[in-house]
Amino acid sequence: MDSIFPNSQQTLSSNMDSIFLRLLSTPTALALMDSAGYIFVILPSLPGFYSSTTGSDSATSPGVSVTRPCISGTYNNQTGSVGPCKLCSRGLKNSGNDSVSCAICDASSFCPLGSTDDVSYTALVSVVQALSYPTSPESVIFDDILIQNMFRLGTSGHCVVVSPLFWALIVTGLAIMILLLMAGLKLCIKHPHGKKARKYLKHVFKQTDFVGEGELWVGGLASFAIVVLVSFAYSFSNSYLNQYPIENVGNSNFACDRSIRNAKFDTSLQSLGIPATENEQTMFDLLNEQTFKCHALRTSIG
């Protein structure tokens, strides 16, 4: 039997170097000498066993192999072999009880090379690793994407939480409550402290007025909603910018549509290993059921 050394069963000993200077083969043994002068002798094994090179870690030279039983899925039916155990062929198995030969698998089971037991086909699940090429989103212009996400509420809880319009409405509701409070201070409360408080609030809101440039205190209330929208727009833009490249990013949890990516794709190529969709499969079935006839065309010259 031909074999390669080192292999999966006969690895290099801890005292052996990977560079060999001498190799001596006899009818019953194999001797190796590495670049450091260390000698290792692989002795023959009995049927059902193999010569392990990692059993003897003695630093003294020469090192000698030890006999170990064949692992599951392999066998050895030869006497005096210095190589590893052979793998059971396809359709054969070895659970480790008998290391001299392999047993026949059931005809209805999955039994590949080096099997240790029968595996029913019903326990196997087909996994398609071919993925279709990503398709570009319907909108690829950032201004349109920003507007769609700024003024979108959605129906799920996630969409509501990340919606800038929702938080702008919350701020607007608070502004309306403040307006009612200011109207109450003006119409219902005649006490000087009430007038003083209303005057102070008007002064504060004028300082935050971005709409009327500090002239309208009502504009200060509207400015809070604008600040919320602008803050969300900046946060969305920064997060959307980081959604690239597509291989290194995850879901877009900052938006209602978690599948959006900062990428555009354009190709007409598709792998043949990609399973067809339900609509496409119907067309393929119709084409496969058609029969094609070839008609000979005769021409005459004369």
Rank of each mutant, 00 (worst) to 15 (best):
140 V>I: 11
124 L>R: 06
127 V>G: 00
108 S>C: 01
72 S>C: 06
68 R>F: 10
137 P>A: 15
83 G>T: 05
139 S>M: 10
86 K>H: 15
102 C>V: 06
116 T>M: 13
77 N>H: 00
127 V>N: 08
101 S>Q: 07
121 Y>Q: 00
139 S>W: 06
73 G>W: 01
78 Q>P: 03
99 S>L: 11
115 S>F: 00
92 L>R: 04
132 S>E: 14
108 S>N: 11
77 N>Q: 04
83 G>Y: 07
118 D>M: 05
73 G>S: 00
118 D>A: 05
121 Y>I: 07
127 V>T: 10
123 A>R: 10
128 V>Q: 12
130 A>C: 12
134 P>C: 13
93 K>D: 02
70 C>A: 08
146 L>V: 14
73 G>F: 01
120 S>K: 14
145 I>H: 14
78 Q>C: 12
69 P>G: 03
117 D>H: 13
68 R>E: 14
108 S>K: 03
94 N>H: 09
110 F>L: 05
117 D>R: 07
143 D>S: 06
76 N>P: 02
65 S>F: 06
78 Q>L: 14
76 N>T: 04
114 G>M: 02
117 D>E: 14
116 T>R: 07
68 R>Y: 08
122 T>R: 09
105 C>R: 03
133 Y>K: 06
143 D>Q: 04
142 F>Y: 15
127 V>W: 01
96 G>H: 04
118 D>N: 13
68 R>M: 14
86 K>T: 14
81 S>Y: 09
143 D>V: 08
114 G>Q: 02
140 V>F: 10
126 S>Q: 06
66 V>F: 00
132 S>K: 06
120 S>L: 15
136 S>H: 11
126 S>E: 04
119 V>T: 15
144 D>V: 08
139 S>V: 14
108 S>G: 07
123 A>K: 09
78 Q>N: 15
97 N>K: 00
135 T>A: 13
130 A>Q: 07
114 G>P: 01
115 S>A: 11
95 S>W: 06
132 S>Y: 09
67 T>N: 04
129 Q>I: 00
142 F>W: 13
139 S>A: 13
102 C>D: 01
83 G>C: 11
68 R>W: 08
75 Y>W: 08
112 P>C: 04
136 S>G: 12
109 S>C: 11
68 R>N: 06
76 N>R: 13
82 V>E: 03
118 D>H: 05
94 N>K: 02
104 I>A: 12
119 V>A: 09
114 G>L: 01
81 S>H: 11
84 P>M: 05
143 D>F: 01
93 K>T: 13
120 S>R: 15
111 C>D: 05
127 V>H: 09
144 D>S: 11
142 F>I: 04
100 V>D: 03
110 F>N: 02
72 S>Y: 08
99 S>Q: 10
137 P>K: 08
77 N>M: 03
65 S>E: 03
87 L>K: 01
99 S>K: 09
122 T>I: 09
145 I>T: 12
101 S>C: 03
80 G>L: 12
105 C>T: 02
103 A>H: 03
110 F>W: 10
75 Y>G: 02
112 P>I: 02
101 S>M: 08
81 S>Q: 08
77 N>R: 00
123 A>N: 15
104 I>D: 07
116 T>P: 04
84 P>R: 02
123 A>M: 13
121 Y>V: 05
66 V>Q: 03
130 A>K: 04
139 S>Q: 13
139 S>T: 11
141 I>K: 09
110 F>V: 03
125 V>E: 15
89 S>Y: 03
92 L>T: 08
73 G>T: 08
100 V>M: 04
